[in-house]
Structures are given as C-alpha cells and as structure tokens.
Design a protein around this nucleic acid. Structure first.
Lengths: 220, 220
DNA sequence: ACTTGTATGTGGTATTTGCAACGGAGGTGT
DNA sequence: ACACCTCCGTTGCAAATACCACATACAAGT
C-alpha cells in the first residue's frame, strides 16, 4: 500500500481520513511515487495534467515565462503541500512550468477519481473532496490578498496593505512576520533597499515601529 | 418558489441542474432575494458570512481597506457572477467590504447547505458542489495570473506578461483584448500615460504592433 | 578576541513611473 | 459643417524607485 498513514498524517488533504478509508483510497486514487532530481522539469506550459502532486520531501517551483522569455517564480511548494490540483480538475492547459529545485520525493494521485468517486457517496472520498475544496479556497484567498497588495500604486501603500494583512492575521497591532527583509521585499515585488528606506521613513513619521521581523502599527 | 429556471439558466453555478432538482434545491438552500440600493454596504471587514451571493442585476464592489484607511477595489461582480462563496465555506472573517455600486438585485443561498447535503448523495447538490468547485478554481487561476503579472518588476515586464496571457487565451499572436487603454492600465495598476508610452516604445522596437484593443506580438 | 558571514540600513545616482496639460482622431448629434 | 465628447498618444517635469556601494549590527565559529 502506497498511502501510508504515518506519512500522510501531516498532509492537510488527508486530515480526518481513517485508516480504513485510506485503504480504500489506495485502490481508488492510483497513487504513485516519483523521485525528481534537482532541476528536473515535472511539466511544461500547455500540458494538460491528470494528477495532483504532493511534496513529501523537497521543493518545487512554479515558473511562468512570457512570449519573449522573461521568467517569474509564481509559487513555491514545500513539504506537505499540494500542487497541480486546480489544473487537474479543470483540465485546462498549464500556463507555467513545474520544476524541482531540490532532489524531491513526490506523491501523485489521480484527481479526477476524487470527483468520480464522490458521486458514489463514499465517505472517505467526500472528506477528501471537502479537504480539497478547503485547500483550494485557502490558496484562492492567498492569491487574492497578494493581488490586493501588489495592485497598490506605490511602495508605501504596498507596505501598509501587507502589514495590515499581518495585523489582521495576528489580531494585535504588535506581531512578528514570517519573512526576513529580503523575503518581504520579494513578496512585495520591490527592491530590498527601497523597502528598508520606506520602513525607516515610516518609523520616523511615527506610524509604526519595527526591528527585524517584529512590527508594531500605530494610529496617529 | 424563488429559484426560477429562466433566471438561473445563465448562471454558471446552476448549469446542468434539472427543473426537478431545482425544486428540491429551493427547499434545501434557503434562497432569498435582496434589493440593494447604490452605495449600500452588504458586509464589513471581520464579518463571518453564511451565504453565497449571486448578482441577478446590478454591480458589487469588493473593497479592502488597510490599517490607516487606504482603500482598494479588489474585485467587481456583475450580472450572473458569484461573491462570498469562498468565505462562506471557510467561515473565516472577511478582509474586505462588499458594496453595491448600482441599485442591485441579489440572490443569496446558504452555502453550508451545499456541503451538508452533499453527504446525503443528492444528485442535484453534487452537481452544484462540482459547479461551485469549478467556479472557485477559475477564480483562483485568475488571481494567480493577476499576481503573476503584478509581481513583475517594471512596466515593460507587466505589459509583456499581460499580453502573453492574452496570447495564450487566443492561441494566435494577433488578438483583441477585452479592455480599453484605461482599463488595461487599471488591471496592470499603472498610469494610463505611462502605459501608452511603453506600448509606443515597444512598437518602435518592433516587438509588437497594436491599434486600440488589437495587438500583434512579434518575435525578433 | 578575532574572523567570517549574513542581514539590515543608508547615501548617492540613474532610471522609471506618475502626473498634468494638451492635441489629434474618430464618433455622435444638431 | 459644426460643436461636442471620449479615447488615445505625446511632452515636459516631478516624484518614486531601482541600483550600486558601503557601513553597521549581530551571530557563529575558531
């Protein structure tokens, strides 16, 4: 049996699935393992994919490339995260490549089988379907938030929007963000130095305080 | 009966649902109609919502506001589109407001009922669930594309990425986009004049041709 | 204590983008 | 034909940001 309860216990997609249900899923989902070496491409633009990938070990980059060849990393998938779930359901051609950037150990399952089996009212599958929905919604909300932040017209507003999201996540105006300065700049798609300058300006104006990854928002 | 087959026939969420199934849904989904006047708020940040909204007539804006009060329109919902579906499933607090910007006629349905009833194996509900999944995935992919474009570091790359998406949608390097110049600038979150300048520069360099909404991409 | 390395902040300059003003093209109604 | 309007492109200038070089702070190892 490929679907191992120990391995899958930390993967959100399989939360709440019992060992018995897992045994059934093992026959339904056609699970298979793939090892990818660093730099190996898993799929290319225009591919239509059938499987959802799950990172057991390693790191995958989703890379988009425009008509003239400029590249951009759209997403990174690390341990226990899913990739390809949306495109394998909608069966639309990819608009990006998937590349392993570390030696990776991957589990693939036949996504369409979740939808098919859901019609039979199988309990384990319905849980899986619901988990899948939850994960996709979470990803959708994350992309929405990112688009919200990136659509702000200048650096000050991007920083403000980003910190407001973090403030909302934490519930208090004093919190620690999960990024260092460079990662924060990357998320905001701005230059690190420009970000440092803007933060320092905002601190001087008294609207926030910070030190490394710790921030405190202030009303005037 | 509130769920009217004629009205719903153009709404993607109800595609493929038979008239009989619709009658059952009418009792299950607790549908209700609401008329909103222009400027009326439908919900506020931090609200936890129970319903998916469907625009029968009118226009709704999704507006986010940061800690210091800067506003941003994240999304616009027009006739036959859904809003609030993700948050009413995940039951996480909103990070935006919903406002009618025209007198609007709205249909609301109890989202959680779709998930509950799916467990009973009801056929109409399962179709609805699947339609919902498809819509959410489509929205997710759109936000992904938008985030991809907006995360490009300068205007040239934003334009390139945007036109490449349109190229991929159309399949040929010569196509018409569904925006005028101002709308295109808004989508890219840049100044209209700056966009005109960049396009004109790219035309001079011979990497593309355009006239109003028509574009042609060229390899060098 | 010293070296090394990494993360962060700062200053100066070049480049990009925003902004305001304007002119031309094309459409519409009188 | 004329006035009027909207959309688009252009120009000049101001403001914001990227880029480069370097200083400082802090942590880890020797």
């Amino acid at each position: 049996m490929i679907l191992n309860a120990d391995i899958l216990s930390h993967i959100p997609l399989f939360q709440g699935i019992t060992v018995d249900e897992l045994a059934r899923l093992d026959t339904v989902l056609y699970p298979h393992i793939k090892n990818a070496s660093s730099g190996e491409f898993l799929s290319y633009p225009e591919d239509v994919i059938e499987d959802t990938g799950i990172v057991l070990e390693g790191r995958i980059h989703m890379i988009s490339e425009d008509f003239w060849g400029n590249q951009n990393i759209i997403a990174e998938f690390t341990k226990n995260t899913l990739f390809g779930e949306a495109h394998s359901i909608s069966r639309t051609p990819l608009f990006f490549s998937l590349v392993a950037v570390e030696p990776s150990n991957l589990l693939f399952i036949r996504t369409q089988q979740i939808l098919n089996a859901a019609r039979c009212g199988d309990n384990g599958i319905l849980k899986l379907y619901h988990n899948l929905m939850t994960i996709i919604i979470q990803k959708k909300l994350n992309y929405m938030k990112k688009a919200d932040i990136l659509s702000r017209r200048n650096l000050r507003e991007k920083v403000s929007a980003f910190l407001s999201e973090e403030y909302q996540k934490n519930g208090t105006p004093s919190f620690t963000i999960p990024y260092d300065r460079q990662q924060m700049a990357d998320y905001l798609s701005v230059d690190r130095c420009a970000l440092s300058k803007e933060l320092s300006k905002m601190k001087k104006e008294g609207i926030l305080d910070y030190r490394h990854s710790w921030f405190q928002l202030k009303t005037l």
